[in-house]
Design a protein around this nucleic acid. Structure first.
Lengths: 202, 202
DNA sequence: CTGATTATTGAACAGTTGTTCAGTCGCTGT
DNA sequence: ACAGCGACTGAACAACTGTTCAATAATCAG
């Protein structure tokens, strides 16, 4: 019933909320603004979603479903995210920063998948071994999401439109370069940081 | 005059705003809440800062000064940021997402410094060469800031308190590992992405 | 067609928002 | 002592907030 008629006012409200929440933040968006964007009355928003919080949860669910149904492998999921519609990206970034339960679950889920994926890579020999597989997976995922959250700044400095696919690809390629050939030619920084780690837990 | 008496009500208001803005977002924070945290009347905060926007700009300036005066080299600046007081970190993350002019300037500034720093490294031989130095610098900086913006999620999955220094060090070490030895043992992903880049601009 | 269920609205509510203003307090220079 | 000045406040303002509710329009089963 829901997915059958997804061009209804309900869907329009959700899309409007997604865009506005992503642009202005959840707290910075009024129900009236969402209603105006969707071309309906504020009362209809409440009728369909119960409350503003309900509307936010509906956005959470929609974004989660969009991403989960996107790709199976973690890397493909990343590609989907990067090329997904901009409103979804922006909303996801907001949700991650606002520490929405759904966003937290999604982050944990991606980390889980990534850790398994990297473990497979280790077994098959195309991923280097790590001293701390968990921390590596978490850091890797946070790096994947970084251009998503900081998209505006990254895009601005890379010249093109932040929403432009070419800009995202350019940044991602530079990242893969670092992840493949490494950035530092010797281990001076790694050694220094390892020393700090030892000093923290003597 | 300002720095002379930095324990005044004005400073207390700024600190309270920094914390509240970082936690609840700027739009989600009321002047009354800031005033209550600082133990003053709402009228006093507008007396000192003109408006809520003025208060936000004062926070911007304060954070920028804190970071700029921190370290000279980019890496040291990073260390300062990571170990800086949590409210400043949170506020900076919010400002980056809200696309504050000051935050944009700071991001550009860090990228500039980092690009120069990496160029020096290339000359001195401890940084690998890159096909796109600019994109690499931008991506590298966004990776540096990622755990800052996603601090809550990262910290949660790394077990410890997100504000705990040890947790941040653990994640940073895993990152340096990837940047030193690389993550991928062969260039299958890099080749694939380079192909995508070529396909985007034929 | 009738009846019932759903979609949709306008008006209104109580509370919160940022901001204003007249006025009080405490200090400092003369 | 007294005038001046900045820190500081309580009360109030208009605008906006999320939400409620009765009433209307549309849809659909029988």
């Amino acid at each position: 019933m829901r997915s059958a008629s997804d061009l209804t006012a309900r869907a329009r409200i959700r899309d409007a909320a997604l865009a506005r929440f992503g642009t202005d933040g959840i707290a910075g968006t009024s129900v009236r603004a969402v209603a105006a964007d969707a071309g309906v009355s504020p009362a209809l928003v409440v009728h369909h979603f119960g409350s503003k919080e309900g509307l936010r949860q509906a956005c959470d669910d929609y974004v989660l479903d969009s991403i989960r149904s996107g790709g199976e492998a973690a890397t493909e999921a990343l590609g989907e995210i990067l090329q997904a519609a901009t409103p979804v990206r922006r909303y996801l970034a907001r949700a991650l920063l606002d520490d929405t339960p759904a966003a937290g679950a999604l982050f944990a889920e991606i980390v889980e998948r990534t850790e398994a994926w990297l473990a497979t890579g280790e077994e098959e020999g195309w991923v280097h071994e790590s001293a701390d597989a968990r921390a590596r997976a978490v850091t890797y995922v946070s790096w994947l999401l970084a251009p998503l959250v900081l998209g505006d700044h990254v895009g601005r400095l890379l010249g093109g439109d932040p929403a432009e696919t070419a800009t995202a690809v350019r940044g991602a390629r530079a990242g893969l370069e670092m992840l493949t050939h490494g950035l530092f030619a010797d281990d001076r920084w790694l050694a220094a940081f390892t020393a700090i780690g030892e000093r923290t837990r003597p």
